[in-house]
Design a protein around this nucleic acid. Structure first.
Lengths: 344, 344
DNA sequence: GATTTTTATGCAATCGATTGCTTTTCTAAA
DNA sequence: TTTAGAAAAGCAATCGATTGCATAAAAATC
């Protein structure tokens, strides 16, 4: 069963005493085949259970209707939603997706990109890994004539198409909201600063503080609190300060915010009255916690769609003007109970 | 930039005044090339920024180190974890993944399988869509000499490799647990019965009832309550019965269980004292709800790994004995507060 | 009926890498 | 120095589909 030969256009041609070229033309709907033979070819193709060999036609045409996607983690809500968004568009265009995950490892990211280059994909959609080192591999993509769309975590130094998520803006809004609610000492849980998204979020935080004339207190800024556990640890540290914060902006993720909530609850600290909490990403669970968590929705599926559309609508058509190379998906602050100090 | 030619083995051969076959042998590490020329070839390959064209070599070798995966939805925790598990194994074996989602549509599932067949993938890993109609497309996979591993939602009538999840067993355990906790009228939220996983869960429910001498009450079995909303609606109906249930087993998903909890809370019904709730899948949020939800963990990442290993360890090596064609991943009942009537 | 135009089909090269077979080159034994 | 045997390199076919060009057949025009 394994080694049976698949029928090729030659098999069809032989059976009908035709030339393979006619078969090819008939199957691809070209005009220069008579209706009768065309019908005959289609019929026997079906009879012989013929399937085109995309490897052969891709090779000949020098085009591969396939797009490679590289994300840090497939099974992270944010990314799997982006992929779903991408898939929605590419499927409808008849393109396949090859999906790779870098597992947040730079080395692996490079390998993924390499395979995709070898595969001759038409385009690569990529979001860089947490331990990003340099962009040689990304340059290499362009050198091999492959398009590149970066999204979310991008390398700014490269002039490629990008889909960004207004991180700074969102952080600014979130912190402003906390200030408006009357919180006075707002802490920040920040992510690895080699990723620009985290830099931007920090920048938004700082901008909001300074706009409202709040001092920047270094003690209230905690590095690398990315997970639930790290968020919890950071919170313990923060709350044992002589002057603890009255709000924590977990700019890394909702998971970190959940860690904050864990600690607050175990210490009997009232949220939002004594402690405001704001997360980032609008994970499903944020509306289920008690109290529900204020967070930022990034419209991940939208991002995915935009990434794919950027390729199909701009790059592929050669509309490579400098205008519109960067798309910004404005995130939205979702205000929930965990920061509504005023309304309680 | 788009239309630059990529360097081929011929370019390398020409530059070194060699034949392409030597270049090919050198690059693929074959023995019959002298060490000196080999080194020379490797050097110039690097200089010319050479990348092998997998389309060409796949075509020639008649083998594509690529595996196709078809799932109902990419962005569903359960499936994205399975994919992550699959990817872990396939990556390490140097295989690529082409990922497709059927969006629970039979028509689309067929199309996905078709493209994968055209792509000449080595194997297809598939979980069938909710509106499954027939298995013609799956038969067709085998007819084209492509391996098939079904997982989770499988078509039993086909003799393929399978990874199953002990649904009946799990449901049996869950319902037995409810009975042990003293619940007397246990309702079932069931999923579309054309998917055998839901049939099996129902069977487990019925078996547990009958083992403990409980009557089967048709009114307490609600069809097709798959989402949070449908789960909520079903709960409203159930609770307005003259003799309402004192426990609800949401065999469809944790989302349905969440819908149950929503209604219970809005009606002021105490969980678990007045109403026990059990979900299915161990979604992240189930440990966050108040009370936390009893559910069933399916070890989705494990399932993915097993699917991939089944292919690499058994099928590929031709160990296609009838033994071991089916792997069962035993799920685990996670008991949380939503069903602990006794301990309160 | 002859000629031009259109349409249908065939031929052969091509995409890039692989591989069985042959030829050349080198090494080592006689 | 000759020669058997091994190693290295070349030749050419192949994988399956596509496509420009040539030829044959049919249709349209005069």
């Amino acid at each position: 069963m394994e080694n049976q030969k698949r029928t090729t256009i030659y098999d069809i041609a032989r059976k009908l005493d035709l030339n393979a070229s006619s078969v090819s033309r008939a199957l691809s709907g070209k005009s220069n085949v008579s209706e009768t033979t065309k019908a005959l070819i289609l019929k026997t193709a079906k009879e012989l259970n013929y399937r085109p060999n995309s490897m052969a036609s891709n090779l000949r045409r020098g085009e591969n209707r396939t797009i490679g996607v590289v994300v840090p983690r497939i099974n992270q809500n944010y990314f799997s939603n982006i992929i779903a968004g991408i898939e929605e568009v590419t499927y409808q265009k008849g393109y396949n997706l090859i999906i790779c995950q870098s597992n947040e490892s730079y080395e692996r990211e490079v390998k993924c990109v390499d395979t995709l280059i070898n595969q001759h994909v038409s385009c690569i959609f990529l979001s860089i890994s947490a331990d990003f080192e340099n962009n040689e591999h990304l340059k290499s993509v362009a050198e091999h004539g492959i398009n590149l769309v970066q999204f979310d975590r991008v390398d700014d130094s490269l002039d490629t198409y990008k889909v960004l998520c207004g991180n700074e803006e969102a952080a600014f809004e979130a912190v402003s909201h906390l200030i408006e609610q009357g919180y006075k000492r707002i802490a920040l849980l920040e992510g690895p600063q080699n990723l620009n998204i985290f830099k931007q979020r920090k920048a938004g935080y700082l901008a909001a503080l300074s706009k409202h004339g709040f001092p920047i207190i270094e003690n209230l800024i905690i590095e690398n609190a990315w997970t639930r556990e790290l968020g919890a640890n950071a919170t313990k540290d923060l709350l044992s300060l002589p002057e603890p914060p009255d709000a924590i902006f977990a700019s890394t993720s909702d998971f970190a915010a959940l860690g904050v909530l864990d600690v607050a609850q175990s210490k009997g600290i009232k949220v939002p009255q004594e402690l405001g909490i704001c997360g980032f990403s609008n994970e499903e669970f944020t509306q289920i916690t008690q109290p529900s968590l204020t967070t930022i929705d990034q419209f991940s599926k939208e991002i995915g769609k935009n990434v794919a559309n950027l390729y199909f609508q701009k790059m592929k058509k050669g509309l490579a003007t400098e205008v519109g190379k960067i798309v910004n998906i404005k995130p939205q602050l979702i205000i929930r109970n965990s920061t509504l100090k005023n309304s309680v």
